[in-house]
């Protein structure tokens, strides 16, 4: 095994202005470490650099051109793509849909994740089994769960059959704009509840028991303890869950593509669907990338506000 680290001659690289010349060092770094690091980082950074980091920069450029994805010529058009978005009714519809969807997913993710975690945070029988069951949708593909729920919500599907047994006439869920968006929101939360519960569960188990004992001595009831101790102490995890839910809903594509195909009449056309249609169906790569950037800035903006408001981000993402 010949590693460059072993082959390095001490002193070869001991330059760098000001720093004392010492054998086997580059400035304050060890030559062997620097060379090994370069060797170890190279493969991952080559892949990430070409397929993630470079595309971020390239996307910034593409969004300022009229490129169709195939033409070798990219004409610089300034902010025309963004101006066109601002004048595009479909974009505003998509933005509204995404904001409503994201709000629902964020709120319900926190409530359901914390709820299940609190139920599981006790020495009860079958705890592992419950956890495993709740986690099942999270490991199943979006395509599969979207197919199943699409048929469960069919006018002659199982959900309406159950409702009929109760004497209720079920609606045609996916043909009504708001019902479809509501169903999509619930489907997303349903898929991720196990994941969020496990996150909250680990945070719950790290909470100091002494605080609870002290509170119990002071006569605080279970509800008071939840509100005054558990929820505030879990704030960093709540921040993390919210950011995750936010990114999930602003990036939603697979679920929507199969569940409703963006319909009915654009009722569930989230920004991801709109971008896909704009770029890959209509061949407008410039416009598609502009939508992607608007998405990025919205996610960053909301995350920043959330960070400031909760004041908890620091500890969650350190």
């Amino acid at each position: 095994m010949t590693s460059p680290a072993l082959g390095a001659r001490p002193g070869d690289l001991g330059r760098r202005g000001g720093a004392p010349r010492r054998p086997g060092r580059i400035g304050r770094y060890r030559t062997e470490d620097v060379l090994t690091a370069a060797l170890f980082l190279l493969p991952a950074f080559a892949v990430l650099g070409v397929f993630v980091l470079y595309p971020i920069v390239a996307a910034g450029h593409i969004s300022l051109t009229d490129w169709n994805g195939f033409d070798p010529v990219k004409n610089f058009v300034g902010f025309d793509n963004y101006v066109a978005l601002a004048e595009n009714g479909e974009f505003w519809n998509s933005l509204l849909v995404t904001v409503v969807y994201a709000t629902g997913v964020c709120l319900l993710s926190v409530v359901s994740g914390l709820g299940v975690a609190l139920l599981l945070d006790a020495p009860i029988r079958g705890r592992g089994l419950y956890r495993g069951i709740y986690f099942l949708p999270a490991v199943t593909s979006s395509v599969a769960v979207a197919i199943v729920w699409r048929y469960l919500l069919d006018p002659s599907g199982y959900v309406n059959t159950l409702l009929a047994d109760l004497g209720i006439e079920g609606p045609d869920w996916l043909q009504d704009r708001w019902l479809a968006l509501g169903a999509l929101t619930l489907l997303t939360v349903w898929k991720n509840v196990g994941f969020n519960a496990v996150l909250y569960l680990t945070a719950l188990q790290a909470l100091p028991a002494s605080v609870y004992e002290a509170a119990a001595l002071d006569g605080a009831g279970p509800w008071q303890r939840l509100r005054a101790i558990t929820v505030p102490l879990l704030a960093p995890m709540t921040f993390f869950v919210l950011v995750q839910a936010l990114i999930t809903s602003f990036q939603a594509f697979d679920l929507v593509y199969v569940f409703t195909e963006g319909g009915p009449r654009g009722g569930t056309e989230v920004l991801g669907m709109l971008m896909y249609r704009e770029a890959f169906r209509l061949g407008d790569f410039g416009g598609g990338t502009a939508i992607a950037f608007v998405t990025l800035f919205l996610v960053l903006g909301v995350t920043l506000v959330n960070w400031r408001v909760s004041g908890a981000g620091r500890s969650a993402l350190r």
């Binding site: 993630v52 971020i56 390239a58 996307a59 992607a292 950037f293 998405t295 990025l296």
Partner: peptide
């Protein structure tokens, strides 16, 4: 933090 959508067209 960058959504996949940003990188997917250039990639």
């Amino acid at each position: 933090m960058v959504p996949t959508f940003v990188t997917i067209i250039p990639a």
